[in-house]
Design a protein around this nucleic acid. Structure first.
Length: 887
RNA sequence: GGGCGGCUAGCUCAGCUGGUCAGAGCGCCUGGUUUACACCCAGGAGGUCGGGGGUUCGAGCCCCUCGCCGCCCACCA
């Protein structure tokens, strides 16, 4: 006998181990099986499972379990990302905390050794946590972005793109992270609005004593690198100054006043200082006017030797203070205003201000690669779900900038470029090849040194969809599983990851890496607030698994996944779905107690009893809805349908109505038992992708009753139900029964009580309402109610049609009439509602426009509704009158 | 500055191509425990679908407009 509740803590580890040991997670070798692969969005090795992972990986698992049951060669390929910056920062911080020497003192090799050490110790955490969720990944293929195979892919891609001219080295302004002293990409910069100041500074005009031009700036320290002042060509105020020079304060350099469209007469003073080495706009202005670039910063953003001596070595913010003070002393500070402004911060720490900085870096020509990636989505070869994200994708892709892929870090893929003493770079997959290339170039051996830099983490994850399958060395699985079936991921990495996978996948494989991108919303707390450590509203998915079980969390994730932008998660919600599991568990328990065992060779097509024909049709509908929903990756729709079917159809009605049928001596009892067991089995299968543990457990627990199970549920075939299972007649009849019973209060609680033990009955007379209930329903609930006036007429098919003689005495459960006043009020209210309905419909039908112009079926529908309402009014009116008599 | 999304019961949200669309879960109120389930059952209260205009025989659902809220992008001195 099943316990009263399911005990996830006891069951989950055991079942997971059994699944894993059985090899069920690996794709079948059956050559006839259609391949279906999902590559996991690789979490950072340093990561801990958060609620977003729980959502994302639950959906992937639902999908992969579904496709596996459907007989496909389903592969869910797991792995982790080395996460260059994040991991390096974390290990560095730990070194600092434990009082070790820093990275630089340690040296590159020793430091990387430390990181690997750290990875081997803690890197397994997140994959273990995925197992707790029930993720059915093929762990035998687990990958890491720094694995040798994936590194080979990185080298090959880099070299190929370089040879194709799509990767190049260039000296440009980059987003410089001065603390880590590395370049970062545009995406790794976040702009934050802060309170700043705008200083107005007088730049004296050379040769016109006492005259000056006032420039406005939020970053006065950069004036040390100014090489011009720009004004708009049409700006009358400054027209005569164009071509003249100013004497740059503090530096005492002469710089020109140039006319450039960039200067906006509306902004600041209309005159803008130009610092080409420290501002992206000024860089472009500088190029137009052939201005020199003066870099005034060291890599850690202190002033360098290009600055006047007194400022050298000062941090940029200290320098700002000093410069403002000095300007004030010189009487060159015209004023200062408070200013709300956007300041670029480092996306990871959100603490370090990013500095535009002139360096040599490697760039990917993203605009060229973006073309096919845009076309693939335009042509629908890859679709985003929900579709609104396509616009985001297009907007970014169509305005894409060159991608800076080099990072001045140690943890990552070292760039396969070797420099000769003259600075020439030889980009090859191996040092030997580089050497050979150099020899060919120079006609002799030259000493080569490899580029110190590593690649952006997203460069290697951009290859994930095919590098994990073995490319470039082993193509068997690439051929089999690429393109993958679907990518399920969060919207926050559409640019970082999805876009790059599209570009690189199309370029190297010729095909988009996935047919569909399912984009998840961001999970927030129950009030729609973003989860954050400072707010203290972060929920740990593993705690939720401990508390409610993995199935409850998974089902919650699936059910909430329909929310497009934000998902509000509350414990109540999870509790509700945990309760759903318990409900199913108890339904199974009920089946067990009532001997509803699977019967060998049982064919639902042959059932006779109306309830059984009905539930067969309902099961068909649900099977279809769930299958369609999962096929369309509409996880929420599948979850809702199953919730509704299990609770509101199977438990509320099927099992309740079956109770009298299952009573000893019931004619249809055997058939009903078999049908109930069959339905439960179907539910277990349909629910398995979302609630794998409980369903597998029930599958196992019901194995001994009936014919033996041939396999675990995880590899059980997805059901195939014939359309002929539908039975409109039974559906109509049962709809009537359900409606009738619904009208009678407490009838359903009566169903729980054996006839002999029912409470006292009140004898009354049959009226239209009671007749309707009983006549519609005799077969199903006849034995519930003691009926004296029940008669039977011969039916055309030889059966018997029950009817209630007018005025016959009959009995209803006393609860039905226990509160006559309430019943009267209810009827009165219903009548009022009907009156409104009748009124509205009558008016509608009286409207000639409506009758003439609305579709025929709509008009007919309204006519029917009116007739029904009028009939109901009569019926209810009579019932009310009768009740008044009784009261 | 540009773009996108949202504003539907106390809360969190469903409502697909305009014609039972005014819904669900939770919360709240009332009543109910002899053997599937109190993680339960039966019932109830509660919304002029952000405001205003328009199109239509008919609009949460289409158009215009206003108002909030959120997100993304952007070089604004």
């Amino acid at each position: 006998m099943l316990d009263k509740t399911f005990d996830p803590a006891a069951v989950e580890p055991r079942l997971y181990a059994a699944w894993e040991a059985s090899g069920a997670f690996a794709p079948t070798d059956d050559p006839g099986a259609a391949p279906f692969a999902i590559v996991i969005p690789p979490p950072n090795v340093t990561g801990q499972l958060h609620i977003g992972h729980a959502l994302n990986n639950t959906l992937q698992d639902v999908l992969i379990r579904f496709e596996r049951m459907r007989g496909k060669a389903a592969l869910w390929l797991p792995g982790t990302d080395h996460a260059g910056i994040a991991t390096q920062m974390m290990v560095e911080r730990q070194l600092a905390e434990s009082g070790n020497i820093g990275r630089r003192e340690l040296g590159r090799e020793a430091f990387i050794e430390k990181v690997w050490e750290w990875k081997s110790r803690y890197g397994g955490a997140i994959v273990q946590q995925l197992r707790r969720l029930g993720a059915s990944c093929d762990w035998s293929r687990e990958r890491f972005t720094l694995d040798e195979g994936l590194s080979a892919a990185v080298r090959k891609v880099f070299v190929t793109l370089h040879k194709q001219g799509l990767i190049y080295r260039a000296k440009r302004l980059v987003n410089w992270q001065p603390q880590l002293q590395t370049a970062v990409s545009d995406l790794e910069v976040v702009n934050v609005e802060v309170n700043g100041s705008m200083w107005r500074i007088r730049y004296p005009i050379e040769g016109e004593a006492g005259r000056h031009i006032v420039v406005a700036t939020t970053r006065p320290e950069t004036m040390l690198g100014d090489t011009a002042v720009a004004v708009h060509p049409d700006d009358e105020r400054y027209k005569d100054l164009v071509g003249k020079q100013v004497r740059l304060p503090l530096s005492d350099r002469l710089i020109p006043i140039v006319a450039d469209e960039h200067a906006d007469p509306e902004k600041g003073t209309g005159a803008v200082k130009i610092t080409p080495a420290h501002d992206f706009n000024d860089f472009r202005v500088g190029q137009r006017h052939d201005l020199p670039l003066i870099n005034i910063f060291t890599p850690d953003a202190k002033l360098n030797d290009a600055a006047p001596e007194k400022y050298r070595g000062l941090d940029r913010f200290a320098a700002r203070k000093a410069i403002v003070a000095d300007l004030e002393d010189l009487g060159l500070l015209e004023g200062v205003d408070a200013n709300r402004m956007m300041v670029p911060y480092d996306e990871k720490s959100k603490l370090v201000v990013i500095e535009p900085y002139l360096t040599d870096q490697w760039w990917v020509d993203a605009a060229t690669l973006a073309g096919p990636a845009i076309a693939a989505v335009e042509q629908g070869r890859t679709v985003f779900q929900p579709k609104v994200w396509e616009k985001t994708y297009f907007d970014w892709m169509r305005n894409i900038e060159p991608w800076c892929v080099s990072r001045q870090l140690w943890w990552g893929h070292r760039i396969p470029a070797w420099f000769a003493p003259d600075g020439t770079a030889f980009v090859e997959e191996t040092e030997d090849e580089a050497r050979a290339a150099a020899r060919a170039h120079y006609g002799r051996d030259e000493p080569l040194t490899q580029d110190e830099d590593v690649l952006d983490t997203w460069f290697s994850s951009g290859l994930w969809a095919f590098s994990t399958l073995g490319w470039p060395n082993e193509l068997k699985d690439v051929e089999r599983f690429y393109p993958t079936g679907a990518l399920i991921t969060g919207f926050d990495i559409i640019f970082f990851w999805v876009a790059r996978m599209m570009m690189l996948g199309l370029h190297f494989m010729g095909d988009a890496p996935f047919a569909k991108v399912v984009v998840n919303a961001l999970i927030r707390d129950e009030h729609g607030q973003k989860m954050s450590k400072t707010k203290g509203n972060v929920v740990d998915p593993l705690e939720l698994v401990d508390e409610y079980g993995a199935d409850a969390l998974r089902f919650t994730m699936a059910a909430l996944s329909g929310q497009v932008r934000n998902i509000s998660l509350s414990r109540q919600r999870i509790e509700g779905y945990r309760n759903f599991g318990t409900k199913l568990w108890n339904a199974a328990r009920f089946c067990q107690m009532n001997g509803c065992e699977r019967v060998d060779g049982f064919d639902p097509a042959t059932v006779k009893h109306v309830q059984n024909r009905w539930i067969r049709g309902e099961a068909l509908k649900t099977w279809r809805a769930v299958t369609d929903a999962l096929e369309a990756s509409e996880f929420a729709a599948a979850a809702d349908e199953l919730y509704r079917f299990v609770w509101n159809v199977f438990c509320d009605w099927r099992l309740e109505l079956a109770k009298p049928v299952l009573a000893p001596g019931g004619e249809a009892a055997a058939e009903t038992r078999a049908m109930t067991a069959w339905t439960l089995d179907l539910v277990l299968k349909l629910l398995h992708p979302m609630m794998p543990f409980m369903t597998e457990e029930l599958w196992e627990k019901t194995a001994s009753a009936g014919p033996p199970r041939d396999s675990m549920l995880i590899v059980a075939p997805w059901p195939q139900l014939p359309a002929s299972y539908a039975d409109p007649e039974a559906a109509a009849e049962m709809a009537l029964v359900i409606a009738a019973i619904s009208e009678g209060r407490s009838v359903r609680s009566e169903l729980n009580v054996p006839p002999s033990a029912r409470p006292p009955l009140l004898v009354t007379e049959a009226g239209p309402r009671e007749r309707r209930i009983l006549e519609a329903n005799t077969a199903a609930i006849g034995q519930l109610l003691r009926v004296d006036g029940l008669r039977f007429d011969a039916a055309a098919d030889g059966g018997a049609v029950p009817y209630l003689a007018e005025g016959a005495a009959f009995a209803l459960p006393v609860a039905e009439f226990i509160d006559l006043a309430a019943e009267r009020a209810r009827l009165a209210k219903e009548l009022a509602a009907l009156a409104g309905d009748i009124d509205r419909t009558t008016k509608k039908l009286a409207n000639p426009d409506f009758v003439a112009r609305a579709p025929e079926e709509v008009v007919d529908e309204n006519r029917e509704r009116l007739a029904d309402a009028q009939a109901a009014r009569e019926r209810l009116g009579a019932a009310l009158k009768r009740l008044e008599g009784v009261g």
